[in-house]
Design a protein around this nucleic acid. Structure first.
Length: 494
RNA sequence: GGCGGCAUAGCCAAGUGGCCAAGGCAGCGGUCUGCAAAACCGUUAUUCCCCGGUUCGAAUCCGGGUGCCGCCUCCA
């Protein structure tokens, strides 16, 4: 089986063949550190996190580079406003970013370089472009001459002529062509600067990614990712800079994730509908966010909404309910270390075989351009079979064959979960966090609910069903669902 | 104006030429339960926006139409 990746460059799915067998060089455009991360950053991060995990799962040695842009107009603006230097602003938002990513279960990249640590490399790259006649200097600014780079527009699928036809872009008198972009900006008063052959200044936005990716991954590398909005101009310009300087192909596979809309509207600061990662994580468990993101294909636009989040939470709850049941059965049962699949027969064997085939089906889905939606479908299909198996065999809770089959199911579910970064929590921990969060939101305390449940249990023992039902109704009105088992009752918050 | 994408059940969402159109949520009927809840079983698209065409055969390919949306400017 071969991994297929949709390559934005060629607009089709292609077999993934890394430059060097068994190794993958992977670069993703990170954040500009001027504000806290929102749900759109979260999607991008989760998508590429899963791609990273999957490549490793498939046995590749992956070098994953994700940069931080720590010098830029917006950072400078904020620094001026607060009267601090840009490093203070960047440090703050990089720290926030790392907190958010950790909370979302996003693995740290192999390298997380910062633009300002790579100024020398940027100057060298610009010098090479000047030497090759692909750039020109005007009053301390350096521009890339798009007309001098053959193939400009190949990633975004347009030609310079087409772009000129309809576009309305700001005309900068210094530019020879309106699509020329800045490689180096002469310093204005009060702005941070670095010395360069063209005077004091700072780098343009696109140059850092060309430099940092090649520094850690080589002049040509395997996969470059980012949000679809970066295709033009950012990634187009990265190609122009890198290939202009080296004369070699820059990136073999370009991967772009789709946007997040909020209640069917574009998320934007002007609409005031930006949800930050911290907002979301106050409301739901990270698994819910990840499930919400990964149940759609990474390229499609997803619509973030209350309903969508609730659906994902319900699904997550079902998963952990089953896992909790399995854990209890395994804890209460005996030892089955010396058991193997060969010892099974009948229903046990059929179930075992089905469960053992989960990773195979999972890989099949993921190999098809990281189809996490299909992959998750297989996980839930397995979950249903597991539930059926448990309820068909309630009287066999101490049998080795049964326990062995359950244990296998759990292992296979966790194996796929590890790649998705999902389903990895301890169920009781998951429910405890979920409960605490919901209680806070509804202004309830565990104590008052426990007291009511206890009162109800007394009524139940006295067979005072009327009173028991009244208490249950009261709790339900406040969003608390009571669930009775033989001796006691548990409860969940809706 | 230029370039591109999408349209599948009540909602979300896979499926890109051929088994009964995955999976999740929600609903309904049943098992269980004092009654519920959870879990389980069954059920909910003879059909994939509309109209043509290609084909033995299309949600899937082609042409046209309709409706949404994105990019072309900082943006994940």
């Amino acid at each position: 089986m071969t991994l297929k990746i949709y390559n934005t460059l060629n607009k089709r799915k292609e077999d993934f063949i890394p430059l060097e067998e068994g190794k993958v060089g992977f670069y993703v455009c990170g954040i500009t550190a001027y504000d806290v991360c929102h749900i759109g950053h979260a999607r991008s991060a989760i998508v590429f996190d899963v791609i990273y995990r999957y490549l490793k799962y498939r046995g590749y040695a992956v070098t994953y580079v994700k940069n931080f842009t720590d010098v830029d107009d917006k950072i400078i603006e904020k620094a001026l406003k607060e009267g601090v230097d840009i490093g203070t602003i960047a440090d703050r938002y990089i720290r926030e970013h790392n907190e958010d990513m950790d909370a979302l279960g996003v693995a740290r990249p192999t390298v997380a370089p910062r633009a300002t640590e790579n100024i020398k490399g940027m100057i060298r790259l610009i010098e090479r472009l000047l030497e090759r006649g692909l750039a020109y200097v005007v009053d301390g600014d350096v521009f890339f001459a798009v007309e001098r780079f053959e193939g400009y527009g190949k990633l975004s699928g347009r030609t310079l002529d087409e772009m000129m036809a309809g576009a309305r872009i700001e005309v900068d008198k210094k530019k020879k062509n309106p699509y020329d972009f800045v490689l180096w900006k002469a310093a204005k008063k009060g702005e941070p600067w670095w010395d360069s052959p063209w005077g004091r200044g700072r780098p343009g936005w696109h140059i850092e990614c060309s430099v940092m990716s090649q520094r850690f991954l080589g002049e040509t590398f395997d996969i470059h990712g980012g949000g679809e909005d970066l295709i033009f101009p950012h990634h187009e310009n990265e190609i122009a800079q890198a290939e202009g300087a080296t004369g070699k192909p820059f990136v073999r596979y370009w991967v772009h994730n789709g946007f997040v809309k909020i209640n069917s509207e574009k998320m934007s600061k002007s609409l005031g509908n930006v949800f930050t990662v911290k907002d979301i994580l106050r409301r739901v468990h990270p698994d819910v966010v990840r499930l919400f993101m990964l149940r759609s294909h990474y390229k499609s636009i997803i619509d973030f909404s209350e309903d969508g989040l609730r659906d994902a939470r319900s699904a997550m709850e079902r998963f952990y309910t089953t896992l909790e049941t399995v854990n209890k059965l395994l804890a209460g049962g005996g030892d089955f270390d010396d058991f193997s699949g060969k010892d099974l027969s009948g229903e046990d064997e059929a179930f075992f075989r089905n469960v053992e085939s989960l990773p195979e089906r999972f890989v099949d889905a993921m190999d098809d351009d990281f189809n996490t939606a299909r992959a998750i479908g297989y996980v839930f299909e397995t979950l249903r079979r597991l539930n059926t198996y448990i309820s068909d065999n309630e009287d066999r809770s101490r049998e080795r064959a049964f326990l062995f089959a359950l244990d296998t199911a759990k292992k296979r579910l966790r194996e796929t979960g590890k790649v998705l970064g999902l389903f990895l929590a301890d169920p009781s921990e998951y429910f405890r966090l979920d409960r605490d969060r919901e209680l806070r939101r509804k202004n309830l305390t565990e104590e008052e609910i426990d007291a009511l449940v206890e009162e109800r249990n007394r009524a139940r023992r006295e067979r005072d069903w009327e009173k028991a039902d009244a208490i249950r109704d009261r709790l339900r009105e406040r969003g608390v669902l009571v669930r009775d088992s033989s001796g006691s009752s548990s409860w969940t918050v809706q």
